[in-house]
């Protein structure tokens, strides 16, 4: 399958992330880069500007900016030309999907179809064929996997923001090694420890952020939350919100509830869970038990 990767305002993190895909060599046998910002490609960028044929999937990376010119042509012109040519469009990363961090650095910046959660109409004719792969950066398994599913023409169920369900139906909370501290409402957390949950004080957005960070694991070995860093909510339209390391609270009650959980249900369960001071969760995991 022939791929064309077009970067707008990007950090190249998505392109580098893909190189970490463990099956990259085998995976790549099924794909041809017409253009990729790092990897050997069939065409040069000036040739892409001149015009090529045969694009099957257009990969859009980076925040779009009104009037952006990469070399000679307006980026929008390239997007329209190859967007029409491609069977599918994949917005890779949060910048290309929702605008992301760089959208905050100037006016006229957005993702391909969204500015935050506002659905834009500038490329509406592409909406039906667009797949959104937010993440800052995207996990390599998500990008490689989605492209393979598209290539095989297998069904690819999407959510309302067009994120593939196979990767985004989960929350970052799923699979976190700190889950029990959340379930039993142990709200004490200190950095530099294996124990505790960052939901209560330290801004963790894992319970309401879609993605597979703790299911697939990063680089196959770990995740931010396992390493004691809060989930920053980087796959969601409102990334990055202000005060990423603090949990917004209303009189001590977290302002945002776990995904789909009514506040009354959460508070009711929290009240019950909190009532039991469960000994195990108050002790260091690595404590010598004298056995």
């Amino acid at each position: 399958m022939r791929l064309l990767w077009l970067s707008a305002l990007a950090c190249n993190g998505n392109a580098h992330s893909l190189l970490n895909y463990p099956g990259f060599q085998e995976w790549q046998e099924d794909f041809h880069w017409l253009y990729h910002p790092l990897l050997p490609s069939r065409y040069t960028f000036p040739e892409i500007e001149k015009g090529i044929e045969g694009v099957e999937v257009l990969i859009v990376d980076g925040t779009l900016e009104e009037g952006l010119i990469k070399n000679r042509l307006p980026y929008r012109e390239l997007l329209l030309r190859y967007g029409d040519q491609a069977e599918r469009i994949v917005t890779v990363g949060t910048c290309a999907t929702f605008g992301g961090i760089f959208a905050q650095g100037g006016g006229g910046r957005s993702g391909l179809h969204f500015e935050g959660d506002e659905h834009l109409k500038g490329y509406e004719r592409f909406w039906e064929k667009t797949v959104s792969l937010p993440g800052c950066p995207v996990q390599p398994e998500v990008l490689a996997g989605t492209l393979s599913i598209i290539r095989r023409r297998d069904p690819l169920p999407l959510d309302t923001l067009h994120r593939p369900k196979y990767f985004y139906a989960y929350t970052i909370h799923d699979g976190c090694t700190r889950n029990e501290y959340f379930e039993y409402k142990i709200d004490e957390h200190h950095f530099g420890t294996l124990e505790g949950c960052m939901f209560y004080d330290h801004g963790c957005q894992g319970t309401f952020t879609h993605g597979s960070c703790n299911k697939i694991l990063w680089n196959g070995v770990n995740s931010k939350t396992r390493a004691g860093t809060p989930c920053l909510g980087c796959t969601e339209p409102d990334f990055p919100r202000e005060g990423l390391w603090r949990t917004p609270k209303h009189m001590g009650i977290p302002a945002r509830m776990p995904l789909g959980v009514p506040r009354r249900a959460y508070l009711g369960l929290a009240g019950i869970a909190k009532a039991f001071r469960i000994e195990r969760f108050t002790r260091p995991l690595m404590e010598d038990e004298g056995g």
Binding site: H250, L267, G271, R277
Partner: peptide, 29 residues
């Protein structure tokens, strides 16, 4: 009746009252 389990329903509603008030910008956080 550990903690506030047995008064959970009452306390939950007070929490919701506070939470709404702060969220609406009416009560001090």
């Amino acid at each position: 009746c550990e903690g506030m389990i047995c008064v959970n329903e009452f306390v939950t509603e007070i929490m919701i009252f506070f939470d709404d008030g702060v969220a609406n910008g009416e009560l001090k956080n």
